[in-house]
Design a protein around this nucleic acid. Structure first.
Lengths: 223, 223
DNA sequence: GTAGTGACTATTGTATACAAATAACTCCCG
DNA sequence: CGGGAGTTATTTGTATACAATAGTCACTAC
């Protein structure tokens, strides 16, 4: 995507993630023009993308609102992500190239380095985590799967601001990644799938424990 | 979507499905304004949708081409559809309302009526089939799942022009639908999943047999 | 002949003016 | 007061002009 359009996308996205925009609030294209500094044309393109990612929703009459995710929405997204990423792990275990295996191990080292310190570097951890899963999705060689997962993985980032990661969460996550590396090294598709499944399922429970607890039962968007 | 935009979408889609547009051929926005009769703005919106549906692809330098699907692409789409729709069937079996069950049975009757004649009415069969799967996806109550499936189910329609449906294919499909109805009536999620799995897996093999045979190994888009 | 350079063409990207649709408001009538 | 028709304001949709970028082609120097 081109400059203004990309600019609009990331500016609006940042705006939504910042919490400045309240869930359910109406937005207009003119407002977004102000925020993004570009004209309505690229704003509209960005809005379409964000609609597709379900960060924005439209009423029957084309009005635009900040999405308000329910508990069910969150559960749905985690369930789908688990299903798709287990599939990805299985495929990846069968198709992983040597270079990809090396890359995976390197990323895993970076991931461990980020938390094996007095004060864990959560930002670096998250980035390494993202890269780790990206290698797997690449190796799965399924562009449509990658596209679907991208939406699901990106989306909960919206809620991530509220999250706190306990050292134990991070260590457990690192153990999972170690086991995934072992499964991939062994090219054992079933093993990889199984580990990925428990990894993501635990992530779901950690998520509802840390975020869900701080929110109402129906709406997670707003504290 | 509004009038011109929707018009552009369906006109371009029809153009792509008609076979007039050759796989891999470059298209320009100007061409598409001719074809659709609307200006570039709604054309561009339609193009974005079609890109998302992978009917159009763009080069690194923003040029637009008619998608050319490989054998691997087809396999990927069927595999993903099977995974997602099995999940949908399982969920649907647990959540199906009485009204939805009634609707499913009604659609199934229509489906059988379409083929239980001297000359099977394939168009009516396909429509009933679509409606049948739609009821299931609705009942699964997973909007993101529905969105993903919509893309996968719609896409192969592009290739459907070439297909011929043997009476035996249609009868076997009808038997599957009968069994799905039974599984849903029993609210048996495992049964529903299993039947859906074999149903779609067979559909894949029928597909490659009837279409794939008439095409090269690499590219299914062109005869 | 071929690689490189520059002008020219084609194509996509952005801004903006205008049209259509929808929501909000006012004012009148009961 | 309350409800509804007509009017105004707001918002989204479309067309189009212009800008920026990518591709093409011819020409020249080597």
């Amino acid at each position: 995507m081109s400059r203004a359009s990309e600019q609009a996308y990331s500016a609006i996205r940042a705006f939504l993630l910042s919490g400045e925009a309240k869930a359910g609030e109406q937005l207009t294209e003119d407002q977004l023009t102000q925020i993004t500094g570009v004209s309505r044309t690229p704003v509209r393109e960005a809005v379409r993308r964000l609609e597709d990612e379900l960060l924005l929703v439209r009423s029957d009459t084309k009005r635009m609102f900040v999405a308000d995710w329910s508990r069910d929405d969150i559960e749905e997204m985690f369930a789908l992500r688990q299903m798709l990423e287990c599939h990805a792990a299985e495929r990846a275990a069968r198709r992983l190239s040597g270079a990809q295996m090396d890359k995976l191990e390197a990323v895993n080292l970076a991931l461990k380095a980020a938390i094996e310190q007095p004060v864990p570097d959560v930002a670096r951890f998250l980035e390494a985590n993202r890269a780790f899963h990206e290698v797997i999705i690449d190796a799965a060689q399924s562009p449509r799967l990658a596209q679907m997962l991208a939406k699901l993985v990106e989306a909960p980032v919206v809620l991530r601001t509220a999250r706190t990661y306990s050292p134990e969460d991070l260590r457990q996550s690192a153990r999972d990644h170690d086991e995934l590396v072992a499964a991939f090294a062994a090219r054992d598709a079933d093993w990889a799938r199984a580990v990925m499944g428990s990894h993501l399922r635990r992530a779901f429970h950690t998520f509802v424990k840390t975020v869900g607890a701080a929110n109402t039962a129906d709406s997670i968007g707003e504290p």
